[in-house]
Design a protein around this nucleic acid. Structure first.
Length: 464
DNA sequence: CGTTTTTGACCCGCGC
DNA sequence: GCGCGGGTCAAAAACG
């Protein structure tokens, strides 16, 4: 095979000094306090339309004792902590010392407002508690299923080749999952301990094979981009470039350089038919923490890979499991995703190039409900090419948000995963997978403090 | 001068 | 066994 030996011809895939860019935009060793501020500011739980009060979202009653309730209403969760009535009187004492009636009226108004806000705060707490409960139920359900599956596998294999760690093994081995899901890890550990009782040696061999498969699982992302490489928040180093058969555009190979020995690699290639489409294929899982800018993409691809593997692990039929997943997610299918089984390694493709709807989110209003092994945000779609053996999934087009013209891929993924329709589809899909039709469970990693209650619908409306 | 990119060579798997 | 194609290595060149 011959590489393109000319700089001019390869320049289309040669990224600008991405290292400098990433370091400048996402300083890896710096705290992201600004994000926390944004996160608070995004929450607009209950703007008071009745009084048309401007909301001081980020106001802390602990810090300022001179809060005028007629002007600023704290919409955070510290509503109950301020001695607002007395504070109000202090202010009024200076302005109108001779008007006792007016002051009393003001106090009454303030108290009423305070009580109203307390009630709303209580309601919000209840909603939050319900979401947490729903999440815990869902998580327990998943854990139970994993345990049952593991035990069944052990029983089945006790007279055969030993114990197969089965799909959950692959799920939990993902780096992000390891970071974010201790509970699931413990389940996985127990499951594996049970298996080890049966046949230690075979398990190790199988695990090695599985890990190799995991490392080889790929997530391909198709996105329109004029740039030679998509900004996904990670730091990459180019280590090769080749001409691939059937495509005049060279394929570039990158490896993650954010940590020594990080196994993650990616391939970047322009589509032969449409050169505005850039296909980025990710492989492996990061062995290091990720900056927020990279979390969206990394967690999404990792989750996609984990579900892909959980459905196509080296079982007896291999294909059946993936078909099961595809069938399960049928009602929410789309042509934005695909599974490739005939490729050298299992690959799931997320197609972000088909964005029929105009921009319907405001970037600064979104926080990604990070996807990890707990949320299982998988939805597989119709094959984009004839490689796939699986078909039949159509996800409603309107769940796919469109990023701003110069949005990074991470932005797009963030928008996608913040879409309520997206999460709703995932919720139903998970319910379907678990076979219980146990709808109503909340989706998202509640443990993750970055999860934000603000979502946008297709019309750009913010809901909580 | 350290880091990154370029690019020819090499390795490996697969099909014939 | 051979050729083909995908993927990786590593020395040289380029860059900041």
């Amino acid at each position: 095979m011959v590489f393109t030996g000319h700089k001019t011809s390869s320049s289309s895939l040669t990224p600008p000094p991405t290292t400098t860019h990433f370091q400048a935009t996402t300083p890896y060793d710096q705290p992201y306090t600004c994000d926390d501020d944004k996160l608070i500011q995004e929450v607009d739980f209950f703007k008071d339309k009745k009084h048309d009060l401007p909301i001081s979202d980020n106001y802390d009653l602990h810090k300022d004792s001179t809060v005028d309730l007629d002007i600023n209403i704290n919409t955070g969760l510290h509503l109950l902590t301020g001695n607002t009535s007395s504070d109000q009187s202090v202010i009024d004492d200076g302005v109108s010392p001779n008007s006792e009636d007016k002051q009393t009226k003001h106090e009454i108004t303030a108290k009423a407002e305070f009580e109203r806000m307390s009630g709303e705060n209580q309601q919000l707490k209840e909603v939050l508690n319900k979401m947490i409960i729903d999440y815990n139920i869902l998580e327990m359900h998943i854990a139970t299923m994993m345990q049952q599956k593991g035990e069944r596998k052990c029983k089945e294999d006790v007279n055969g080749k030993g114990c197969m760690p089965a799909a959950p093994r692959s799920v939990m081995d993902l780096g992000l999952a390891a970071e974010n899901d201790e509970h699931s890890q413990s389940i996985d550990k127990d499951q594996r301990l049970n298996c080890l009782k049966n046949d230690n040696r075979d398990v190790e061999e199988i695990e090695q094979a599985n890990e190799a498969t995991i490392r080889r699982a790929r997530v391909s992302v198709r996105a329109r981009s004029e740039a030679s490489v998509i900004t996904d928040g990670c730091q990459w180093r180019k280590y090769g470039q080749k001409m691939a058969k059937g495509n005049p555009c060279p394929r570039a190979y990158y490896r993650c350089t954010m940590a020594v020995g990080c196994p993650v690699r990616k391939q970047v290639q322009r589509c032969a038919e449409d050169k505005t489409i850039l296909t980025t294929t990710y492989e492996g899982n990061h062995n290091h923490p990720l900056p927020p800018a990279a979390m969206a993409m990394a967690s999404t691809t990792s989750s996609a890979a984990q579900m892909l593997l959980s459905g196509s692990m080296p079982s007896s039929d291999g294909v059946t499991n993936s078909n099961y997943l595809s069938t399960t997610l049928l009602p929410y299918s789309s042509n934005m995703t695909s599974i490739s089984a005939s490729a050298p390694f299992p690959t799931v493709t997320l197609d972000l190039t088909q964005t029929p709807n105009p921009l319907h989110f405001q970037r600064d209003q979104l926080q990604l409900p990070f996807l990890n092994s707990s949320s299982l945000p998988q939805f597989f779609g119709q094959p984009l090419n004839n490689q796939s053996k699986f078909s039949g999934l159509q996800m409603s087009q309107n769940i796919l948000p469109q990023g701003p013209p110069h949005a990074t891929l991470a932005d797009t993924v963030t928008a996608l995963t913040a879409d309520p329709n997206f999460t709703a589809a995932l919720a139903t899909a998970i319910s379907s997978i678990m076979g219980g039709g146990n709808g109503g469970g909340s989706i998202g990693n509640v443990k993750n403090e970055h999860v934000n209650a603000t979502y946008c619908d297709n019309n750009g409306n913010v809901s909580n």
